[in-house]
Computed example of a mutant assay.
Amino acid sequence: MKMEVSIFPFFENAVKMMGPDDSFIRGQLINMVNHMNVQTEDKIRFFGGEISRPAMLDSQGRWSPDSLNITTALIMLKNNNAPKDDVIKFMKESLRANQDDVIKSKLLTRFATYYPESIHELK
Protein backbone atom coordinates (compact mmCIF):
# COMPACT_ATOMS: atom_id res chain seq x y z
CA MET A 1 0.00 0.00 0.00
CA LYS A 2 1.39 3.36 -1.06
CA MET A 3 1.24 6.15 1.53
CA GLU A 4 1.35 9.75 0.36
CA VAL A 5 2.65 12.47 2.62
CA SER A 6 1.60 16.03 1.95
CA ILE A 7 3.94 18.90 2.64
CA PHE A 8 1.02 21.33 2.57
CA PRO A 9 0.60 21.35 6.40
CA PHE A 10 4.27 22.28 6.71
CA PHE A 11 3.70 25.22 4.37
CA GLU A 12 0.70 26.33 6.42
CA ASN A 13 2.76 26.28 9.61
CA ALA A 14 5.83 27.89 8.02
CA VAL A 15 3.92 30.87 6.66
CA LYS A 16 2.46 31.57 10.12
CA MET A 17 5.96 31.95 11.55
CA MET A 18 7.24 34.28 8.84
CA GLY A 19 7.93 37.93 9.44
CA PRO A 20 8.17 40.90 7.09
CA ASP A 21 11.79 40.06 6.21
CA ASP A 22 10.63 36.75 4.75
CA SER A 23 8.64 38.35 1.92
CA PHE A 24 10.47 36.51 -0.87
CA ILE A 25 10.00 33.12 0.79
CA ARG A 26 6.35 33.93 1.52
CA GLY A 27 5.80 34.75 -2.15
CA GLN A 28 7.44 31.51 -3.19
CA LEU A 29 5.22 29.52 -0.81
CA ILE A 30 2.13 31.21 -2.24
CA ASN A 31 3.21 30.20 -5.75
CA MET A 32 4.06 26.66 -4.68
CA VAL A 33 0.71 26.18 -2.95
CA ASN A 34 -1.01 27.37 -6.11
CA HIS A 35 0.69 24.57 -8.05
CA MET A 36 0.28 21.85 -5.42
CA ASN A 37 -2.01 18.90 -5.87
CA VAL A 38 -4.17 19.61 -2.81
CA GLN A 39 -7.86 20.25 -2.36
CA THR A 40 -9.02 23.58 -3.78
CA GLU A 41 -10.62 24.36 -0.41
CA ASP A 42 -7.19 24.06 1.24
CA LYS A 43 -5.68 26.45 -1.29
CA ILE A 44 -8.51 28.92 -0.77
CA ARG A 45 -8.06 28.78 3.01
CA PHE A 46 -4.31 29.33 2.61
CA PHE A 47 -4.67 32.29 0.23
CA GLY A 48 -7.49 33.73 2.34
CA GLY A 49 -5.23 33.65 5.38
CA GLU A 50 -2.66 35.57 3.42
CA ILE A 51 -5.02 38.37 2.43
CA SER A 52 -6.42 38.52 5.98
CA ARG A 53 -3.15 39.37 7.69
CA PRO A 54 -1.92 42.84 8.67
CA ALA A 55 -0.35 44.87 5.87
CA MET A 56 2.39 47.48 6.13
CA LEU A 57 3.51 50.45 4.08
CA ASP A 58 7.08 51.52 3.40
CA SER A 59 8.46 54.98 4.18
CA GLN A 60 7.05 56.34 0.89
CA GLY A 61 3.53 55.10 1.65
CA ARG A 62 3.67 52.17 -0.77
CA TRP A 63 3.09 48.52 0.06
CA SER A 64 6.01 46.96 1.87
CA PRO A 65 7.59 44.04 -0.03
CA ASP A 66 5.86 41.59 2.32
CA SER A 67 2.48 43.25 1.86
CA LEU A 68 2.72 42.93 -1.92
CA ASN A 69 2.15 39.21 -1.33
CA ILE A 70 -1.39 40.05 -0.26
CA THR A 71 -2.12 41.04 -3.86
CA THR A 72 -0.56 37.81 -5.11
CA ALA A 73 -2.75 35.78 -2.74
CA LEU A 74 -5.80 37.72 -3.91
CA ILE A 75 -4.98 36.82 -7.51
CA MET A 76 -4.56 33.17 -6.51
CA LEU A 77 -8.00 33.21 -4.88
CA LYS A 78 -9.42 34.49 -8.17
CA ASN A 79 -7.49 31.92 -10.22
CA ASN A 80 -8.77 29.09 -8.01
CA ASN A 81 -12.39 30.21 -8.37
CA ALA A 82 -12.88 30.89 -4.67
CA PRO A 83 -16.57 31.14 -3.80
CA LYS A 84 -17.79 34.72 -3.47
CA ASP A 85 -18.88 34.22 0.16
CA ASP A 86 -15.41 32.98 1.13
CA VAL A 87 -13.71 35.88 -0.61
CA ILE A 88 -15.94 38.42 1.09
CA LYS A 89 -15.26 36.79 4.46
CA PHE A 90 -11.49 37.01 3.89
CA MET A 91 -11.71 40.61 2.69
CA LYS A 92 -13.72 41.59 5.78
CA GLU A 93 -11.12 39.88 7.99
CA SER A 94 -8.43 41.83 6.16
CA LEU A 95 -10.18 45.13 6.76
CA ARG A 96 -10.58 44.28 10.47
CA ALA A 97 -6.88 43.40 10.71
CA ASN A 98 -5.90 46.67 9.03
CA GLN A 99 -7.42 49.66 10.79
CA ASP A 100 -5.20 52.32 9.18
CA ASP A 101 -7.30 54.36 6.72
CA VAL A 102 -4.55 54.50 4.06
CA ILE A 103 -4.03 50.74 4.17
CA LYS A 104 -7.79 50.12 4.10
CA SER A 105 -8.09 52.33 1.04
CA LYS A 106 -5.29 50.46 -0.73
CA LEU A 107 -6.87 47.12 0.16
CA LEU A 108 -10.28 48.22 -1.11
CA THR A 109 -8.70 49.32 -4.38
CA ARG A 110 -7.19 45.87 -4.85
CA PHE A 111 -10.39 44.12 -3.87
CA ALA A 112 -12.31 46.25 -6.37
CA THR A 113 -9.78 45.40 -9.09
CA TYR A 114 -10.13 41.63 -8.71
CA TYR A 115 -13.65 41.35 -7.30
CA PRO A 116 -15.58 44.40 -8.52
CA GLU A 117 -18.88 42.55 -8.11
CA SER A 118 -18.26 42.14 -4.35
CA ILE A 119 -16.88 45.53 -3.33
CA HIS A 120 -20.29 46.95 -2.43
CA GLU A 121 -20.57 44.33 0.32
CA LEU A 122 -17.50 45.73 2.08
CA LYS A 123 -18.51 49.35 2.48
Rank of each mutant, 00 (worst) to 15 (best):
L74V: 03
S59G: 05
T72K: 13
M17C: 05
N81C: 04
I7S: 10
R26Q: 12
Y115S: 01
N81K: 15
V87C: 07
L57D: 09
V102E: 14
T40W: 04
I119T: 14
I75C: 03
Y114Q: 02
N31A: 06
E50D: 11
G19Y: 10
K84I: 06
Q39S: 10
V87F: 05
M56Y: 07
K16S: 12
S67M: 03
M1R: 14
Q99W: 02
P83A: 12
S105P: 07
I7F: 09
G49D: 06
N13P: 01
M1V: 14
P20Q: 15
N13F: 02
I25S: 09
P83D: 14
P83I: 03
K123C: 05
A82K: 07
M36I: 04
A97Y: 02
P9S: 13
E12I: 09
F11D: 07
K123D: 06
P54C: 08
K89E: 11
S94H: 00
S94L: 01
G48H: 03
E121M: 12
A55F: 00
A55D: 05
T109K: 07
I7C: 04
N98S: 14
S59D: 11
R62C: 04
L57V: 04
F8I: 06
K2R: 13
A55G: 09
M18C: 04
G49V: 02
G19N: 14
G49F: 02
K89L: 15
A112M: 04
L29S: 08
L68N: 08
M91T: 03
D66I: 01
K123N: 11
Q99C: 13
F11S: 08
K106D: 12
D66H: 09
N81V: 03
S64G: 03
R45M: 10
I103E: 13
